Each structure stands twice: as structure tokens, then as C-alpha cells.
Amino acid sequence: MYTLYGTEGEEDDTRGLLPRFAEDIFASFDKQRRENSSLSCELEAIDISSETYVDLLASRRNANISISGVNNNNNNNSKDELKLIHTELGPKLQGVRTVEVKNANDLIKLFAQLHRIASKRTSTHTIKLLFTETFEFDNPDESLQPIRKSRRVRVLFVLLRNMPSAFLRCVDVAVEHDSGENPLAKVPIRESAFTKLYPDILQQGFLLNMVCCISPYYEHVRENFNTMLFAMKVKRLLCMPKLIEDESLVAMRRLADEVKNLRLA
């Protein structure tokens, strides 16, 4: 938990991965920003316990979120209404609350509120971020109706805690499949709630980075050993996410740059 969120405050040494990431991603966008582009971020926070999904943003303790610039796209406050459905874009929880933010400060404030909720829980904790960069181009046919194109990037932070044996079996099969020892194997993603919701993680759909936290105390030696074994196993997973590129967006951005250069010439 400390690795993800750090401690509340502005000291650089005690900030976690999430607030650092929020600042870096928006700062990078501002640095490379084009005149006709804008960036938005949608956030979902799900707690996974056994076969149960809990929407942390819809919990009663967090129902009164009020941050300037933050839009709640769903006012559902009941975790019982969450239902896993399959869409063209993959599995999705129906009824989950999505919060949209426009800048790093609002995202960091939202992380701080989630920290206070998640710190009182002991199950697996996930935060999914969907970044959408929208480009606006002049329409030669309709001057008052510009053409808009978007590109999206998904980022998933996961705090693995008290994972069931079914998840470990999924990891074992995925490692065997990726290493070539059992090329015909299929990851049994339906065996755990986590892999049902995020099947792409063990099917080469993400670029994976793992941080393992171990204890310096002797009584935690066995747990530390198991953590290191798990890390070595996950390190063998292949990561080959597919880049889905809109060719029309690439062409329009290139033409827009050419027009801009001609105007400056």
C-alpha cells in the first residue's frame, strides 16, 4: 500500500507510485502538447475479494467526492449491482462508477481519497486509468463542425494481496505457455475473479512491470521467499500488447503539421 500511495503530504521522499505517475503523465503531455489536442483521464477503482467485486468509488465512505474538475459518470452506490459483462473491448463491470479528471492535481486528490478507503481493506486492489488524447482538425466541408479523432491508452495498477490458488495456477500456465514448454496450453482465466476481469494481463496484452515488497524481519522469511519465487516466475511472462493505430488519425496529424509549417514559411 505504501509503495502505491506513499504518505499524505508533498514530500518527494514519501510519495508513492500513483502521485508520481499522475504528475509525470500530465507533465509529459503538456510538454509535447499540440495546439489542437486535449487530454482526459477516466478512473475506476475495484477491490477484488474471492469472487466478489467491490466498487471503491461507490462506497458510502467515498460517496461525497467533490473535487473541482472531476465528473462522476455513474452514481451507482451499491456493490451488489456490479455484474461482469463481455463487450467488444473486453470484459467490463456493469454498474461500476467511472470518474473523469482533467489534470494531475485532481487525480492526486482522488488517489488520496482512495488511499484512505483501500488502507482499511486486505484484498486485491486495482486502479484502471484510461487516458484519451483528442485531436481537433479543421473540416473543409463544414467550418463550424471540426473533425475530432482520439487515441487511447490503458494503464492498470494492481496491488496483489491474498490471491487465491486459482490465480497462481493461471500464472503457472501462462509462464509455461510463454516459455514454450507447453505451447498448446491455454490460461484458465475463468478460474479467478481477477483474471476474468483482466484476462489480457496473462495473455501478453500488457507491458508488465512488477514491484515486490519484502520485509526485513526474520519472522517474514518464508513470506519473502514465496514473494521472490513469484516475482521470478512472473518475470518470464512475455509482453506483446497490440498497437491499434488509426491510420486516418496519423495521416491527418501529418497533414496538419505540413499546413502549419507552410503558414510559418
Rank of each mutant, 00 (worst) to 15 (best):
F26I: 07
T3Q: 00
P188C: 07
I189M: 02
S192P: 12
E8C: 05
S192Y: 02
A104P: 13
L237T: 06
G16N: 00
D178L: 09
F21E: 14
M240L: 11
P199C: 15
Y218C: 01
A185W: 06
N162S: 13
V250L: 03
M228L: 03
I85F: 11
S38D: 14
E191A: 07
E35S: 05
T14R: 05
S68L: 08
E51D: 06
K83R: 04
A166N: 10
N103L: 07
D47R: 11
P183G: 13
V70R: 02
N261W: 05
E51N: 13
M240Y: 01
L237D: 09
F131M: 00
R121C: 01
D12M: 10
C41G: 07
R148V: 07
L243P: 01
Q94A: 14
T87H: 05
L18E: 09
A22T: 11
L17S: 10
I189T: 01
L243W: 09
K260N: 04
L144N: 03
T52C: 00
S143H: 12
C212Y: 14
R151K: 12
D55L: 00
A58E: 05
E136M: 11
Q203G: 06
G180A: 11
V96N: 02
G205I: 11
C170L: 02
A58M: 09
D12I: 10
D13H: 04
P19W: 01
R34I: 08
Y2P: 00
F111C: 00
G90W: 08
I25S: 04
Q94H: 02
N76T: 15
E142K: 05
N72S: 15
R190T: 12
S123V: 03
V187A: 12
R263Y: 04
L107M: 08
E219F: 06
S215Y: 14
K109F: 04
L114V: 08
V101L: 05
Y198E: 03
A251C: 05
F206L: 04
P19E: 09
H125Y: 14
E44N: 14
E51L: 12
H86P: 13
L84D: 07
I48G: 08
R61G: 15
V175C: 01
T124A: 07
A27W: 14
K235I: 07
T14G: 01
R97Q: 15
T126D: 06
N75T: 12
E10N: 08
G205C: 11
T7W: 02
A45C: 15
